[in-house]
Amino acid sequence: MLRVEIRFAGSGGQGIMLASKIVAEAAGIYKGYNIVQTQIYGAAARGELSKSDVIIDDGNIYTVEIGSADILLCLSQEAYKVYHRALKEKGIIILDEYHVKEYDKLKSRYLPFPITRTALNKFKTGLVANIIGVGLITTLGGFFSEDCARKAVKKRVPKDFLNMNLDALEAGFELGKKKNINLCQQEF
């Protein structure tokens, strides 16, 4: 039995919704699990807290909200502050150390990655940070293959920006592989 609850959090404009839809597409359409993807639809302007949840299950999904996450992707300091406590015992937090400066460094399950830094260095824009996050979730989670993620990015990202986003996805895979973690193979 598989049940994974993934939360994406950051600030408006970082592409939190797109990232969650890509993960939902990869797990749901290309891998074949059942999925539910929800989001806060607040009157959130650019820069305000933004959150989206994806539930992946091999059975029916009745709940639409998640209480605590197996994976929390945090792309802003405020997102960390608001959501880091809602984590399952065996869950992990994927942090963007560029934006999240203050976090509990003693927790081995809080994993900092140079997400925005990589985006800026390699692609001269922080805009693809969300896709790097998708890459990290793919490798650290192991719930769907890299190829599922690639297909989902191809389906969801506008054509003009596709190549950059595909490269960002690969960059995410690489970052993830540095840590030898595969949540799918650990007992949930």
Partner: peptide
Amino acid sequence: DEVIAHMSEK
């Protein structure tokens, strides 16, 4: 419901 309208499923 708003939540059904805005959530995504297969």
